[in-house]
Design a protein around this nucleic acid. Sequence first.
DNA 1: ATATTATTTTAGCTTTATCTAAATAATATT
DNA 2: AATATTATTTAGATAAAGCTAAAATAATAT
Lengths: 230, 230
Amino acid sequence: MCFQSYIVIMIRLTSAEENYLKAVYHLSQEGKTTVSTNDISSEMKTKPASVSDMLRKLAEKEVIDYRKYYGVNVTENGKKYALQIIRKHRLWEVFLVEKLRFAWDEVHEVAEELEHIKSPILIQRLDEYLGHPKFDPHGDPIPDEYGDVKARPRLPLNELAINDGGQIVAVKDSSAAFLRYLDKVGAYIGARIKVLDKVEFDGSLEILVDNKKTLFMSKDVAANILVLQQ
Amino acid sequence: MCFQSYIVIMIRLTSAEENYLKAVYHLSQEGKTTVSTNDISSEMKTKPASVSDMLRKLAEKEVIDYRKYYGVNVTENGKKYALQIIRKHRLWEVFLVEKLRFAWDEVHEVAEELEHIKSPILIQRLDEYLGHPKFDPHGDPIPDEYGDVKARPRLPLNELAINDGGQIVAVKDSSAAFLRYLDKVGAYIGARIKVLDKVEFDGSLEILVDNKKTLFMSKDVAANILVLQQ
DNA sequence: ATATTATTTTAGCTTTATCTAAATAATATT
DNA sequence: AATATTATTTAGATAAAGCTAAAATAATAT
């Protein structure tokens, strides 16, 4: 006889529902307590009418709390579900980069498809195969199978002072264009950097990368690079 | 300037359409020239009415020839498309068994989902990563990117004579139950076998496996094991 | 306090993939 | 050859996920 100390939640979402839940979860992580229909609409690139429809469904399946006209909150169950999708997405990203030699700016779309494959054992084995990675190629933390995330304290590069140093651990903007730019200048995840100078006038910075190369970047670029300070 | 010597066929099927095309292709490989609606219906576990509907769509996209009430044939384009789905399915099966330590009877359902991921580069890289395998874990050949398959001449085990030997290269019935049975008795893909005796009465066989173990099997089981004769 | 604007929802339509029930074509039987 | 049976298709319905247009509600501006 085997008594389990937790209750297995049996929620089954379609791929479309999973994508909306993920969007709501991500938006809810960006500060605001409740997420609006329009926010979700522009995130998902669908019309607000479609969002309203979907919110009704997600509320029925109890992954969000939904008060008409007032916006939504993710429930505890919703959070757990969203974190499992994010876990799958990021594990596949690690696989694509480390095993299949994808560049870090090529992985998002494919991972977006792979994350919806329904097989708990597949993800468990993939995780094991990859050596239980804690961070994805963009430096974002990978939730464990219980939804726990190991967050690293990190700072936008533009907030470092002259002579401060650290390691690039993530990027805020992970658009392909931005990632390609970083690749080009050699500012990859894991690179050791040091701020050599900051220009008062426009906030641009002079950076030393891996004790070898110096490069200049605008404040806007630096604001999108997250650093683990040393 | 670059002139290509072939025309890229731009057909786009939904996952459901891909599954039907695959079923039609597989059935058409089993001898008969044209495939009937009922055959597809029982293969797909959907109603004949749904099949008729789908055949109309597949004919519109020119992957099958369809004459009402007479059944269907796969077109050249259809064949190419079907072989690419099969290629993806089998490459994923190799990945699951060789890299993620799945048993060969656990891979089918997951591969069934993975085969629909739309990314040519993903499959190219996966193939490379796996070392361009030519056969899947059940011994079935993996078509190359042009749809060419390296078939191995093979014989059902029950058709071997006493003292004939060979190597198990594939199974006809790849149901989980059958594969588990084979695993249990140690008759895996690649095993070297020799027919020690055949019982006239019921056609059952006594087999030597890997020069070590002998086992008895019914004619029905033997008929589902394909052997590369030596 | 009311009018205007912005946001959100509802109602009704479309497409895809399924179904059931009814109609039609092909085949088999007497 | 006429009829019965089986196979296949058509017609009409449903559920999911989107859309547009219109209505309802909330927020804001006068």
